[in-house]
Structures are given as C-alpha cells and as structure tokens.
Design a protein around this nucleic acid. Sequence first.
DNA 1: CTGAAAGCGCTTACAG
DNA 2: CTGAAAGCGCTTACAG
Lengths: 333, 333
Amino acid sequence: MARTHLRISDVAQRAGVSPATVSRVLNGTATVGREKRDLVMAAIDELGYRPNRLASNLRRRQTEMIGVVVSDIENPHFTEMVRAVEDAAYLRGYRVLLCNTDENPAKQRDYLGVLAAERVSGVILSPTDRSAPEISELLDHDIPVVAFDRSVDDSRADSVLVENLTGTRAGVEHLIECGHTRIGFIGGPTGVQTADERREAYEQAMIAAGLQSSVADGGFRAEGGDRAAHRLLERGATALLVANNLMTIGALQAIKDLRLRIPDDVALVSVDDPPWARLTDPPLTTLAQPIREMATAAVELLLSRIGDHGAAPRRQLFELELHHRGSCCRTDN
Amino acid sequence: MARTHLRISDVAQRAGVSPATVSRVLNGTATVGREKRDLVMAAIDELGYRPNRLASNLRRRQTEMIGVVVSDIENPHFTEMVRAVEDAAYLRGYRVLLCNTDENPAKQRDYLGVLAAERVSGVILSPTDRSAPEISELLDHDIPVVAFDRSVDDSRADSVLVENLTGTRAGVEHLIECGHTRIGFIGGPTGVQTADERREAYEQAMIAAGLQSSVADGGFRAEGGDRAAHRLLERGATALLVANNLMTIGALQAIKDLRLRIPDDVALVSVDDPPWARLTDPPLTTLAQPIREMATAAVELLLSRIGDHGAAPRRQLFELELHHRGSCCRTDN
DNA sequence: CTGAAAGCGCTTACAG
DNA sequence: CTGAAAGCGCTTACAG
C-alpha cells in the first residue's frame, strides 16, 4: 500500500494516457476507446488508486452530501426519519451529514452555516427557528432546502408536513367514542408548529363536542409529560391525549406512580408510534406519522430539485394514522 | 445576497489587502496587524463572505469530518452512541458522516471506501467485517480508526470495547440468586464478537453453577428474539437472558403471546438498557452498557490520534452494569 | 476519441 | 507583519 496517496497523474503515467482520459474513464463522462479504457482500468487496479474527492468536489463545486438537521436524533421520530433518509440517500450515491440542534437556534444557525460552507447538495431541515437568515442564504446559493415536520418562512423551500389538524381531531373523537368527556391534552412548546397545530386541533375538537378543554404543557419532553400528566389527572381527567412520544413516556410514568390502570382508570392516545408502543401493557393506541414515507419524499424532493432550481416550491402533506390498540376503550382490542 | 459565491479575493480587494492576509485573519494562523485585521473583519461582515470549505479542504488535504459506521442507527444502542459522538464532535468543530451497514459486508466496504475518498479525519467503526482490507487502507493513509463494540484485525486501530464476560456472568448469577436453574440464553449471530462473547460467558457461568445450558439464536433482531423465546420456553426455561435490546422486544412479545407473567412465570434479564426498559410492567432488569462514556472515549481516542499517528494503539474496556429492576426476582423491587 | 492547459478557491512556504 | 506565487488534485472547455 502506498504510504502517500496516489494522484490521477500516477495512473495516467502507468497507463500511458493523459490525466484527462483517466478522469473520463473514472466518471464515464465521455466515450473512451476500448483499448485505453482497459489500460486505465488495469492501472487503477494495480495501483489501488482511489480518486481524491476533495479535489473533485472543489473542481465541480459540489459534493454528494445531504445535511440532515433535526432537534434530536434520540427522539425515535427523528431516528426513524434519519434512517430512512440515509437509505434513500445511499441508493442515490449521497452521503448524510448529521446535525442535532437540541432546539437551540444558535446551534441551528451554526450548523446551517457549516452546511453552506461545505457546499452540500441540499438540506433537510426540521427547523427550530423557521425564520433564520441562514435558510435564505442556502437558498440564495442554490442549495435546496426541504422543511420537514415544520415550515420555514422562506417560500422557496419545499416542504414535507403532517396534517396535524384532522389527525389530532380523530384522536379526540376516538376518546369521546370510548365514553370520555374529561379529556386532557399534554402539549408541546408554544411556537413550535407541530405543537401549536396539535393543541389547536384538540381545542377545536373539544369545542365541537361541547366539552371543556384542559391543557398542560409538557415541552415535548419526558419529564414535562410526567408533570403535565400529574396536573391533568389531579384536575380530574379520565383520558389523556399526548402530543408526542417523549411526553408519553413521562405520562406513563405518572400513571404508574399514581397506581392508575390503563385504560380502566385513564385512557391514553399518543401522537407518534415509537417501537415500544406495543410493549406497554396494554399496548398503546397511537396517532402514527408515516415517517419512512415522509423521509423518502423529502429526499426525492431534494434530489429532484438539484439541477432544477427554477421549479415552483412543492409541499407534500401526510396524514396521521390512528392505530387502535388497547389504551382507550375497555372493549377496545 | 450574492447570487454567486464570493471568493477570498473579493474580500481582499474590499479590504485593500492580499488574499493571504484575509486567510490569516480567518484562520488565526499568524499575527496580523490590528488595522488590517479590522479592515478584513469589516469587509467579511459587509459582504457576508463565507469561506469555501471545499477549497480549504483540498489545500490542507483534510476535512474536519468523522465517519461513524454502525450496523443500524435505529438500534437504540447505536442511536445513543451516535448522539454522544455528535455531541463530542460538535464541541471540537468536527462534523459527523453517518453510515449504516445493516451488517452487510459489501455496504461496509463501500462506505469505508467513500470515507477514504472523502479524506475524513477519522472513522469510528462498529465492524461487520473485522478483516476488511478497507480498514487497513484507511490506516495506511493515516486516517485513524477506532473500533467500537467489536475489534478489528488490523492492530493499528484503537478500540473501545465492553467487557462482556464478567457482565454477562453477573447476569446469570443474578438469575441463579433469584432461584432459577432453567435459564435460557437468547444469543446473537455466531461470528459477531459481542454475540460470541456473551454466549460464552453464559455457558461458562452455567457450567460453573453446575447447570445445563440452553441456547437459542435470535440473530440480534426482534423477530429472532420472539422465535428464540418460544423455543426456550417450550423447553422449560423459567428465566431468559437476552443478549441485546432488539431481541428483548421479541422475547417480551413471545411472553405476552403465551400469556406468561414476568417475573412470576418467567424472569428476564436483557443486555442493553434502552429507554423503554422502564416502561414495561414490571420494569426490566438490564445489563447496561455505558454508551455515552464509550462514545465520548471513542471520539477522544480518535481526535488525540489525529496528528499523532505514531503512538501505540490503545484499547479501552468498559463494564456492563447490572440495573436491578423488577423482571427477575419476585421480591426484587 | 484524446491531450494540453486552465482553473476551482483556498493556504502556506518564501522572501522581505 | 505582509504579499506574490505556487500548488492541493481533480475536471472540463477547447482544439484537433
């Protein structure tokens, strides 16, 4: 093995051709005579040459790299999303650069700046700050951005969103059908689009049914869900609609602490359908997001946009799916 | 905003200095006069200049990028690992390139080749194929490799491993203390180091206790765990030691299908301590790996190795921790 | 089909 | 402290 990297000129020399010809063989960008092609291939093999992508990237002024910016990859929602993005990207010859923002606008800004500087092919962004100027900067430089889960202000971005309104409403209605009237809602942080939409949908549905709303903020986190559940149950709720999977972990903990049983003492519907939703006793009724489909759609949007910057922005909407399991009605399941 | 990217020479012109001076200010690599520095800073701000990293990367012949190669980021074990790697890398100004191999040697080969071509700063690898020549190729080119969870053949790689033997043995002994003698083991695929070590440790511990082993292969996957649990329980096992978290999901499913109760009918200890281990009823007794610490150690090893290629290979060992919860002894908890 | 030459946008000895 | 110049290793018009 070479101690130092080989260059394309080493291959060219060995094969008795010009570097340009080696490049053409490597990239299949032009027809090369059968004879020279074989010579080049042989030289590459013999030398174990591997092209330096840094040089190629600079010269072509692009990379085959997608930036994925999410709040936290440990949230199963994003774990699944990143996995699906990686699958789709790999098939198309793209790499995935992983960026966690922790819902911190400064970290988002920082990472978007890095992605701009690295000249990535595109960015899939679940924004913490939808109005960050770095988003426009990327778009200005023809780096496409797909907003995931949450919209961004810059209208040039494509987006992949969930129709939270109808789905959440269906969840409330299901609890009502199960005979509940005192339905509490554990919501996410105000200002986060998915949180706001789900809360509004809940309130609309409650009003439509002539019931009184009871909302507690769980901040989209497990501990918050725990506290919020305690509060709502103290206020007499017999059913809980929880706006994401992390808060559901907290709510389950609270229910266990209070020695309440599901669904007899408390019914529960959770937005998100994490892998452990079937493991609890009873298994959880959930409002699942079709994440794999959403993630694949995001990659498709992104890659179709590369080299076609002119097209009008597109937005794809996905529905929440109610998975009936055992946590709502006693006769459920 | 500029339609086209600005170059360092644009900044230089605006500031009335040479590109070299702008570069020095940008990188802090040399002392620049206060006056010129201010001029340069102002020009950068006014123009909104952002250096092109592709050029910088090529010139410096390196990137600030770490490749993380794991079998599946949806496995909570690796989710947590990748999260911790990202945290540590971000703090040190490095990016994370995420690579899933699906335990497929061809995909591992492919990704390692990509990482070599991208000239990443280093690679953290949980190998599917420990003897892949691409590992040596990376090392040959002074790209450090840290083996994570599983060793690699090339002795130049650093490694971060878990002491599976003592930990697994402790798990068996705990089940024995709870009064069990018919303890079944659900193991991973033969040839995967962590799987082999855990199986051997189980068998040693059983022999040491004068008990008879009963092993079933669950392939480290949920469905496999389900099947394996059925098999072991049919053979009369009253306790199950499960070698990873995915198979535990399957085993729990099997136990539920058979309408068995934990811990009264079946006791269970699981290697790995996923987030949902506290959500089951009863909460699971587990053998946790200190993943965050392991991941942080891996990044430290990697970055300390960058620019210090000569040092002797290092290996760090971590212990499994037995978390007593409610799935083993009736008097537990 | 093929090669010579220019250039991607930085960084870094080198000279002063 | 600062600038002119070379060069990182490719790709790609251009010419033939």
